[in-house]
Design a protein around this nucleic acid. Structure first.
Length: 905
RNA sequence: GGGAGCAUAGCUCAGCUGGUUUAGAGCACCUGCCCUACAAGCAGGGGGUCAUAGGUUCGAAUCCUAUUACUCCCACCA
């Protein structure tokens, strides 16, 4: 620290220095020992990600929790790491390659992965470096990656295990297909958005020659469509006319009176000309559109189900990239969205369009490629059967073994688990964990055969055991091309970080698991939180964490989500440079409450910076004092007693807040303790005056207490503001080499007398009243005043008022005669400041009358209560007693005021 | 369509099991101050029919019902 402390705190002078110091001394590192463990695993950010405000909030919270736990004597371990994020990262690599003129499909898997790893090495982990700027006290020696050796091995082991348990299966299903990434997605990865679209009404002519209505038209509301040539047709409403090439039936509800005439007939698909049957199924909503549904089994889940029931042909008219396939017979190779426009024109031209209406519907988009509409597609994929996992994951949350903060997410969690669908875990990607399934050669049309094993050698062994496969060779086995869903590795995170899959029951997993608190967003409650609980229960037979703190979304002050497009997302590193990491941390924490979105505004960070500066200057003040052997002034003795009580009370409140994850409240409590109580009151009271231009020394008792308080305050602030607290703590007293505030014990608080705090508040109120009086009468703070008091002033209040309000004498009186002064009340205590010739009697009378009126209004309410026999009879004695006291107090006050009014007149 | 949550000062939110609350905090705002820690500061001040309408109760911001607004989640109606 510089000899001369600057007036302004400069974070850039201290942050890097202390972070390096902490890392060098391995203060963040944890090894199992005899202490109680406190563990947090980081929600692994995307390996190629860049820090944004959401990360800042999330990781600040985690750091506060971990630093506090460390100072509470726990063996705190915060494990950092990154996620391989297969879809996002693969997309980035594909784009990069494209910019180099390389197409993914021209590369072998090995070549592609080489590029991908290069990309990862180059861009990966930036985000972890950025976290250091924030002060994150992660155990960097434990940094993990979802695709590193331990984690990969865990994933493969788990896949094989679950397959062997019969929980993983391979099946032909209607799945969600992302045509841009060209992979399937799980149902959770599809986000539905409202969209303005069109409902197209298409003519499907009746194919049989003699449709001729056997019965007369108009019977029982039947709707027959007949064109100018006398030909009959049905009308189908669809939002997706481009799928007509895949139509293999038209469906009506058997109970639909208006479409009875279509029963048993055949219709012609417009443009395509294919003749398809009219089938009947109760699934069809009679009220929707015309009650006629076109059935495209290959491209709609419901249609697929209808197809299965009614044994319909399935025509897949799309290529994997969303263009029209050969099977469609027309528009081949064109994108489906282009074809939608074109086909409506062509149908119109062919006279087959009845009408087009505006229509609001929901369209599913890929979570990772938000501008790509997801296509339902029929294909063979790997699934994890979820019923079993739902069964084991629900009880710990419902029974409170895991607590959600806020608790409202329990119901979200519950309803998801109670309606769970099987998890599609395969992805048509290369960047990820390759599925350990090996296929045997099979002739065309033959049922596929495969084995699942951790290694190719193991697979070969298994394959040879299959009937008729004794001679199979290693070359004949082909490994599944697909990779696993990224979440299939993330769900193991709290277990795999401690190698609990590969080495069950090892020392670390036993020590660190279950972890304590998880800090994450509610948007991944299904993706991640729920699945970690499943994996934890399945593999360790215990919950992965005790508490889940759900953060909100960081929005700008207008409530908009932060996004690159809007440009409303500040660069966290720039903010740190501008305001200091401590300032940014405090700013974020002040507006964070569990489950609520935070509306971020730079002014909050400014508040954080200002607070840093306040701490800095308090330090400058205290360090500037000299100490001498002299008696302790009365007001200092009182202030020490009071502040100790206040400190202890706040420690208790802060502990309570943390237990309930009310972190913003805890932070605010310490903020006020420092700024309002310590700086504005305590330091002002003990601050020595000046004599002949030099500051008087401080007595030793007061000085020691002040240093003790400052030390306690810095510790309480440290989890929130690690840098400035370390800097000042190191300079507050002599420190040995290698000491750090990080590893000090958090103040434990202790018993305190509430009366001390209450009595002090009398002084505070009196001082405030006298200051207001000075201001309104334009009396300088330097001019000493006299004070009269009627009643018994608390002993500790007197010296405080004397010093802070600059009172020369306090006189106890029976009444204020003559009215030569300004009076005020604190509780029932009456004060008067005698002011010769400075009183505006008229104004004073008005003021007193207003006061009387206020108290009388108050009395009315109290009297109404006490006058109510039912109240007196039913309310608890305590409450009635309280009302009586209110009555007595208010009555006294009014009497005093009236007395005073009289004396003025 | 189903479910959940929320509605308190200009803004963001506390207010837990109804009674020391004719409602609090932080920020913002207004007024006065550069008084040897700090103008990134100090001192003082104004500001709310607790969304609306009913109900329960001796007593409601707090509990119940309905309405309105917003937010979120879930769902295969083309």
């Amino acid at each position: 620290m510089q000899e001369e402390l600057s007036v302004k705190y400069d974070p850039s002078q201290v942050e890097d220095k202390w972070y390096a110091y902490w890392v060098e001394n391995k203060y963040f590192h944890s090894e199992p020992d005899g202490r109680e463990a406190y563990t947090i695993v980081i929600p692994p950010p995307n390996v190629t990600g860049v820090l944004h405000m959401g990360h800042m909030m999330n990781n600040t919270l985690q750091d506060v929790l971990i630093r506090r736990a460390r100072m509470m004597g726990k063996n705190a371990c915060w494990v950092p790491g990154t996620d391989h994020a297969s879809i996002a990262t693969e997309a980035k690599v594909v784009n990069k390659l494209a910019s180099m003129g390389i197409k993914k499909r021209d590369l072998t898997r090995e070549e592609f992965l080489k590029y991908a790893w290069e990309w990862k090495e180059e861009h990966g982990g930036i985000i972890l470096k950025q976290l250091r700027r924030l002060g994150a006290s992660c155990d960097w020696d434990r940094t993990a990656f979802t695709m590193d050796e331990v984690r990969s091995e865990s994933v493969i082991k788990v896949f094989v295990d679950l397959y062997n348990k019969g929980l993983i299966y391979r099946g032909l299903r209607m799945v969600n297909w992302d045509p841009k990434a060209q992979t399937v997605l799980s149902t959770e990865e599809v986000v539905y958005r409202d969209e303005k679209s069109k409902l197209y009404y298409l003519r499907y002519y009746v194919a049989d020659a003699d449709v001729n209505p056997v019965k007369p038209t108009g019977e029982e509301g039947e709707v027959l469509h007949k064109d100018e040539n006398g030909r009959y047709y049905a009308v189908v409403a669809t939002t997706r006319p481009e799928t007509i090439m895949g139509d293999t039936a038209m469906c009506i509800n058997p109970k639909d009176p208006k479409n009875q005439w279509l029963r048993g007939h055949k219709v012609i698909v417009p443009l395509v000309g294919r003749v398809i049957p009219v089938i009947e199924d109760r699934y069809v909503d009679i009220e929707f559109g015309t009650g006629c549904l076109k059935v495209t089994p290959a491209h709609d889940v419901n249609d697929y189900n209808l197809g299965k029931i009614h044994n319909l042909e399935t025509i897949d008219i799309f290529n994997p990239d969303g263009t029209i396939s050969e099977a469609a017979g027309m528009y081949i190779g064109q994108d489906r969205m282009v074809v939608r426009k074109q086909i409506s024109i062509d149908i119109e031209a062919a006279g087959l369009m009845e009408k087009i209406e505006d229509y609001d519907n929901k369209v599913g988009y890929s979570e990772r490629n938000p501008d790509t509409a997801v296509e339902p597609r029929l294909c063979k994929q790997w699934f994890l059967s979820m019923k079993h996992f739902a069964d084991i994951a629900l009880p710990p949350v419902l029974e409170g073994k895991i607590k959600f903060h806020p608790a409202k997410y329990i119901s979200t969690y519950r309803s998801w688990l109670e309606n769970i669908q099987d998890w599609c875990i395969s992805r048509q990607l290369w960047w990820g964990h390759r599925i350990p399934a090996y296929f045997l050669p099979a002739a065309e049309g033959e049922e596929e055969r495969f084995v699942v094993a951790e290694t190719p050698e193991e697979a070969l062994k298994l394959a040879k055991q299959l009937p008729g496969c004794a001679d199979v060779t290693a070359d004949q086995l082909t490994r599944d091309e697909d990779a696993l869903d990224t979440w299939f590795s993330s769900w193991l995170w709290p277990v795999s970080l401690f190698n609990g899959i590969n080495d069950p029951g090892n020392k670390e997993i036993k020590y660190y698991y279950p972890t304590n608190d998880l800090v994450t967003g509610p948007d991944i409650i299904f993706f991640w939180v729920a699945r970690m609980i499943m994996a934890g229960e399945e593999y360790i037979n215990d919950v992965p964490f005790r508490n889940v703190y759900f953060t909100g979304i960081v929005r700008d002050k207008l409530g908009r989500k932060m996004s690159k497009q809007l440009g409303n997302s500040p660069d966290p590193i720039k903010l740190i440079e501008q305001y200091g990491a401590d300032g940014v941390r405090l700013g974020i924490l002040l507006c964070t409450s569990a489950g609520n979105d935070i509306l971020f505004d730079e002014s909050q960070v400014e508040q954080g910076r200002n607070f840093s500066n306040k701490i800095w200057n308090a330090f400058r003040l205290v360090k500037g004092w000299s100490v001498a052997e002299c008696p302790q002034p009365e007001e200092s003795r009182v202030a020490v007693d009071w502040f100790r009580a206040k400190l202890n009370a706040t420690v208790e409140a802060v502990n309570h807040d943390f237990e309930n994850f009310r972190i913003n409240d805890a932070v605010m409590a310490v903020y006020k303790l420092f700024w309002d109580d310590f700086c504005a009151w305590y330091l002002e009271i003990v601050k020595p005056g000046f004599e002949n231009g030099t500051q008087k020394p401080l007595d030793k008792a007061t000085y020691d207490a002040t240093i003790e308080f400052f030390d306690a305050l810095l510790k309480m602030l440290h989890p929130v503001m690690p840098f400035i607290t370390e800097e000042l703590w190191q300079n507050l007293a002599e420190r040995k080499a290698g000491e750090t505030i990080m590893l000090q014990q958090m103040p434990k608080g202790g018993a305190f007398d509430q009366k001390t705090i209450d009595d002090f508040n009398v002084a505070v109120e009196a001082v405030v009243a006298i200051r207001a009086l000075r201001q309104s009468k334009n009396i300088s703070p330097k001019e000493a005043l006299k004070l009269q008091v009627k009643g018994d002033m608390p002993a500790i209040a007197e010296p405080v008022v004397r010093k802070i309000a600059n009172i020369s004498s306090i006189e106890k009186v029976e009444g204020f005669a003559g009215g030569a002064g300004e009076a005020f009340m604190v509780g029932t205590l009456e004060f008067n400041v005698p002011l010769e010739g400075m009183i505006d009697v008229a104004a004073e009378i008005e003021k007193i009358n207003a006061e009387i009126q206020r108290y009388e209004g108050f009395l009315k309410g109290v009297n109404a209560k006490l006058g109510n026999a039912k109240f007196v009879a039913n309310a608890p004695a305590q409450v009635v007693e309280l009302e009586r006291k209110k009555l007595a107090d208010a009555t006294t006050k009014i009497e005093n005021l009236k007395e005073r009014l009289a004396s003025l007149k």
